[in-house]
Computed example of a mutant assay.
Amino acid sequence: MQKIKTALLSYGMSGKVFHAPFLDIHSGFELLGSWERSKKLIQVDYPNVKSYATIEELLQDDVDLVIVNTPVGTHYEYAKKVLLAGKHAVVEKAFTTTVAEAEELAAIAKEKGLKLAVFQNRRWDSDFKTVQKIIKDRVLGDLVEAEFHYDRYNPLLSVKAHKETANDGAGIVKDLGPHLIDQAVHLFGSPKSIFGDIRYTRENSLVDDWMDILLIYEDFRVRLKAGFFVREANPAYTIHGKKGSFLKPRGDVQEDELKLGNKPNLEDWGTELETLQGLLHTEIDGKQIREKVPTLQGNYFSFFDGVHDSIVNNKTEPVTAQDGVKVMQIIEAAIASNAQRTVINL
Rank of each mutant, 00 (worst) to 15 (best):
T74E: 15
H75K: 02
H75V: 04
Y76P: 00
E77T: 10
A79K: 04
K80S: 14
K81S: 14
K81F: 00
V82Y: 03
L83W: 07
L84A: 12
L84H: 10
A85Q: 08
G86R: 09
A89V: 04
A89K: 03
V91E: 01
K93I: 07
F95N: 08
T97G: 02
A100K: 15
A100I: 01
A102N: 02
E103Y: 05
E103F: 09
A106T: 08
A106C: 09
A107K: 14
A107M: 13
A107C: 12
A109S: 11
A109H: 06
E111R: 05
K112L: 07
K112F: 04
G113N: 12
G113S: 08
L116V: 12
A117F: 10
Q120L: 15
Q120S: 12
R122S: 13
K129A: 08
K129T: 10
T130N: 04
T130I: 09
V131C: 14
I135S: 12
R138F: 13
R138C: 04
R138W: 10
R138A: 15
R138Y: 14
L143S: 01
L143H: 09
E145T: 02
E145F: 05
E145I: 05
E145S: 12
E147C: 11
F148S: 10
F148A: 11
Y150M: 15
Y150N: 14
Y153M: 04
Y153I: 09
N154H: 07
L156N: 08
L157S: 04
L157I: 01
S158V: 01
